[in-house]
Design a protein around this nucleic acid. Sequence first.
DNA 1: TCCAATTGGTTGCATTATTAAACTTCGTTG
DNA 2: CAACGAAGTTTAATAATGCAACCAATTGGA
Lengths: 158, 158
Amino acid sequence: MKRTSLAGDSCPVARALDVFGDWWSLLIIRDASLGRRRFGEFQTSLGLAKNILTTRLRALVERGILKTVPASDGSAYQEYVLTPKGHGIFPILVALRQWTEEFDEHPDEIATIMVDRDKGKPVKKLALLSQDGRVLDAADTTLKPRPGRKTARHRVTA
Amino acid sequence: MKRTSLAGDSCPVARALDVFGDWWSLLIIRDASLGRRRFGEFQTSLGLAKNILTTRLRALVERGILKTVPASDGSAYQEYVLTPKGHGIFPILVALRQWTEEFDEHPDEIATIMVDRDKGKPVKKLALLSQDGRVLDAADTTLKPRPGRKTARHRVTA
DNA sequence: TCCAATTGGTTGCATTATTAAACTTCGTTG
DNA sequence: CAACGAAGTTTAATAATGCAACCAATTGGA
């Protein structure tokens, strides 16, 4: 009964979730984007079982989100750092953060705000723009078949 | 030894994942944002087991992402539609989509592109802006303690 | 009106994933 | 070189997932 894989899905949302859509991966990526690099740092920060951290780190490395590098402090251990593909997840973390900031019922429990490093002022909400610069919400968008695509050889969900 | 909950976490990313960070919820929300409303629509679209769909729909209703409404076609069944809180997840879906579009190794398997309804042209990438209008990436941002917060009474991960 | 199919579930069981804790292995430190 | 810590691995219990079969209510059709 294996957990169903979304890898061959034709929906880009599903394909992303297949890569880091489990319970821990995004939190590991968040930690990595905050500068944490060592196995032990992730483990104590997240409080997850070590065997699970092992499998998650391995999967993220295999999928090109993280890469292992020799430890920055000269020790013989290795560290895990984001690849460019991993850094590309940053907007997703921002979107998750902003959703909580806007809709969470206990916003007083949120510890941090995101500010721009220069001025120290809160960042603005992520904006989706059309090519001519209009701000779009869900109702202003549609999905079209991707140009230059034959027939659906894969699962078509969206 | 229950699966660890992220509900009381002080990190807004973790709090969001606690609400819809499991394997299926975001796909249900995606489907809902595409206009699917009926139990059967979700089930055949996603291909997940019905008992799991049941528990997921219930959890999403309970958490204020979906609400049940009488069926739009006059039948006695009910339908599941997004609440405002659920609609607020849209930017997260867009961010996931754009990440796949940019980094997936088989972009030819992606079925659709997002366009603005008016002109039919692809939307632009989500942009994170500072209050004075500069485009920010991860390196241009930092986290600061949220103003007006006492001490960490909750798990502090970020 | 009566019956068959559809909808929207529920139940039970097999399989897989997650967890905590004990154990191993190697690198570092005194 | 002995003890300690970092980074895993292994093991066993518990929880979540998937599948299939079942079921009640609703609906559509003859």
